[in-house]
Each structure stands twice: as structure tokens, then as C-alpha cells.
Design a protein around this nucleic acid. Structure first.
Lengths: 195, 195
DNA sequence: CGGTTCCTTGAGGATGATCAACGAGGGTGG
DNA sequence: CCACCCTCGTTGATCATCCTCAAGGAACCG
């Protein structure tokens, strides 16, 4: 679900590296570029007054991010930073839109991508509203699970990251996780979470 | 942001009327149709176990809804019912997708529409996480305000509807509204809200 | 005027947030 | 190798807030 790298470079795209926590997009900025992750992960989030953060999503290898403001005349609704050291390919808005016009198949891919995003955001808000910390955390874990079989996988997020994604506080996440471990819904081995 | 009615009819679309509260889409169903509101409003929402509802959005005159599952292979993530008596035009999924293929300009319109939806959903989740009933209600009111000037408009939603949209309880909404009235953030005249 | 829907208020309780303190692990430099 | 630091995890106590439950009032419509 990304544009071919050769094609991007042909159109003059440039790769850029960002160090962990470096800001890539600032909330409220005007959109000028198409971004696609080559290596690493990016985190999009909002901060409120008292420093509490809400993670909108993670975008990793091969995924694009921050596209919606390129199509509509709106500012970025969230900030994006490098979750780890990350390499990103950037293309100007004008050229990106021109690619979409020239290649209907690519435009269609983005239509599908946007539809997926809406679908997953709809599920997320439904789950978040549903109150109950345990429920929210389970929804988060499920949405990030790769294989859907029953073998437990290591969850690659810290408790703080889970808190940011679910809108809860760290302590609440920790307490909910302990309870879930007691109920065998997850495993915790050496502080690591398996689900 | 909708398909021309004549075009839809040319392709065999049919208009259908639904009575208030009649179900149009069931959560979990497979998507078979493209829906476009001709007259009235539709509400999309989720219910949880204890009957609490969360409104994902309202779709009124001329707007389409429930498109994402047509593009991706997913079930409907929410239920849609007639908010009032409503007339809706329906077109089969196959024909809808064919129209998109034949008219790139229409496909582009939908890409833009999907981008707008994502943008507004991102803002919504950001606001909902932000806790504070008053804050959530203000965000809801702002997102539904037509003109952005300072003249106050009648808010066409009941307190229950505001509660469903913000994930709060009616009583909480009522108390927050009273407080906001005292602070002159809104007017309440004869139980009606002006913002 | 009777019924329905919506609004309102109060009291009480549950729960997640907050605050504070400490533990554990991993990496770095002396 | 050890000391230090820094990030992450953990726990307990207290507090504020929203939910819950219950009851009644107001507006609207046939």
C-alpha cells in the first residue's frame, strides 16, 4: 500500500533520515509533502495542555502517512515524530497529486488505503468509548496482533505507549494488565507482555 | 460530494424510503450496496452490551455513507438507522465500483471524501480522549456549527444525542451544559440550546 | 387531556486519575 | 568491574469526577 520507490525517485523524491523523537510533522502545519517510511517507524499523536498524549497511530516500513491534508485543504491534525531512527522518502505535494492523476491504479490504491484507515479509526473510537480499561487494552492488542491464531506474541510496546494509545494512565494500564495476567488473558514474563 | 442522481438512476439505482429508526445497515453485515441520502438524515452508531450507544456520525441530504467496506473486504463496523423518515438511493456494489473505474473524476471525489472523513475522525478521537465533559461537548458543538461567525445558532440535537456522540451520560451532559450557560459559553432558552 | 419523549435534580458509589515513592534493568564511562 | 544514570515498571493511598439509580417536572402532540 505504498508507491514504488523507483517511481518516487524518478519524480524527484528525496530520502531523509530522522533521529528518534525528531519531529517530522507539526500539528497545525500546512501539508507540503507526501511521506513514505522506508525504514523504521513513525508515531502520530496529539498532546493536550497538561502534557498528556494521545497516539493516533504508528506507521512503519513501507507505509505512507499524513496524506489526508494533501487531498483536502486542512492543516495537520496531529504531530508526527520518529518512533525510532527512521528513513523517510519525501515528495512534494504537487508531484504527488500529479502521480495520482497520471496513474489511476495508484489513485485507487490510495482510495482503498483511506477506506482502511476510516474503518480502523471507526473501530478504535468505538472501543475507546466503550470505557473499561481492560476492554480498551484488549482492543489495542488485537488491532496490533499480526497473526490471528492463538499463539501468544511479544507485545512490542511499553506500558506508557499502551496508555497513550488507549487514553489511559500508565498506572491504570499496569493494574489492568496484572488483572488480565491473573485471568490468563495475557502472559507477563520478565515484565514483557505476551498476547 | 455525491454522485449525480441521474447517473445513479441510469445505472439502475433505486430509491427507497425508511421510517424513523428503521435499520438500514446492521453492524457486522457484509457490504452489498452504495447508499446516498436524498432526503432526511441517517445515524451511524455502535451499541455495547449494556445498551449504551456511541454515534459515529450523521449523514444527511446528498451525503453518501457506509462506503469504506465497499472498497476493502470488511464488514460494517457500525449500525445505520433512519434518524428521521428518510429517502435513500441504493446501487449495487458491483455497479458502484464500475462507475468509479469509468469516471476517474468521481473516483477522485471519493478519495477526497475519505480524506475528509479521516481528518474529522482524527479530530474527534483527539477531543474525546481529552477527557473533560465540557471540552468534549464544545468540540461536538463546534464540529456541527455551520457558520463560524459568532452569532449563536440553535443546536438541533437532544441532550441524549449529544451524550451518545461524546460518550458521556445524559445527566453529565445536562450538568455540563448548565455550567456552560452560567459561563455564557452557550445560551439555553426554553430548554433549547444555542451555540 | 393523556401519553410520550425529553429534561432536571439529588444522593451515593465506583473507578480511574493523581501523587509520591521505590524497584529493576540496561547502557555508559571511569 | 563498578558506579551512575535513565528509562521503565510497580505499588499504595487519596481524591475528583463521572456514572448510576431514582424520582419527578416540562414540553409537545395526537
Amino acid at each position: 500500500m505504498a508507491i514504488d520507490l523507483d517511481l518516487l525517485f524518478t519524480w524527484g523524491a528525496l530520502a531523509k533520515e530522522y533521529k528518534k523523537n525528531e519531529v517530522i510533522i507539526n500539528e497545525g502545519e500546512t501539508a507540503h509533502f507526501y511521506f513514505q517510511v522506508i525504514d523504521g517507524c513513525v508515531r502520530m499523536f496529539n498532546s493536550n495542555d497538561d502534557g498528556k498524549e494521545f497516539t493516533q497511530g504508528y506507521f512503519c516500513n513501507g507505509q505512507s502517512f499524513g496524506e489526508p491534508p494533501l487531498f483536502i485543504d486542512e492543516k495537520y491534525p496531529a504531530t508526527a515524530t520518529a518512533f525510532q531512527d527512521v528513513t523517510i522518502i519525501k515528495l512534494s505535494k504537487e508531484k504527488f497529486l500529479k502521480i495520482l492523476d497520471e496513474y489511476p491504479s495508484i489513485q485507487k490504491k490510495f482510495l482503498i488505503l483511506m477506506a482502511q484507515r476510516i474503518h480502523s479509526k471507526a473501530k478504535t473510537s468505538k472501543d475507546i468509548i466503550n470505557q473499561k480499561p481492560e476492554f480498551r487494552i484488549l482492543a489495542f492488542l488485537n488491532s496490533n496482533k499480526k497473526s490471528s491464531d492463538s499463539t501468544k506474541e511479544l507485545v512490542p510496546f511499553t506500558r506508557q505507549e499502551i496508555a497513550n494509545f488507549t487514553g489511559l494512565r500508565v498506572e491504570t494500564v499496569i493494574r489492568a494488565l496484572s488483572k488480565m495476567k491473573a485471568e490468563n488473558k495475557i502472559d507477563i514474563i520478565n515484565h514483557k507482555i505476551y498476547f
